[in-house]
Amino acid sequence: MSDHLSPEEVKKHVTIYVRVFMALAALTIITVAISYLHLPILAAVGVALLIASFKGSLVAAYFMHLAQEKKIILYPLILVFFFFIVLLIIPTLSRF
């Protein structure tokens, strides 16, 4: 993310922030509403994690400016994301 933005660019960013906020608020309500449907556990986990991942991506891409960030920051994060997923998969292997 460039540290030298023109006032017009900053104002465009602010518009995006407001839109992202509305999306996050709506997705939070949807997440809670879906939980009251009492879906089977696998479907419930899938839907909840899908929505949470989308919300997390919005925060990272726009509030944390990752969508416009340099590759030197993106590459280590991709590596971390990979190992984070590995950490989540390891305990499920105990079932097999």
Binding site: T28, T31, V32, S35, I41, A44, V45, A48, L49, I51, A52, K55, G56, V59, A60, F63, M64
Partner: peptide, 20 residues
């Protein structure tokens, strides 16, 4: 960046602990 990360963690904690 730190504050948004704290928000991001909660976004995952909330459904994991409260809704599933």
């Amino acid at each position: 960046l730190y504050w948004h990360f704290v928000d991001l963690v909660w976004i995952f904690l909330f459904p994991t602990l409260y809704l599933l």
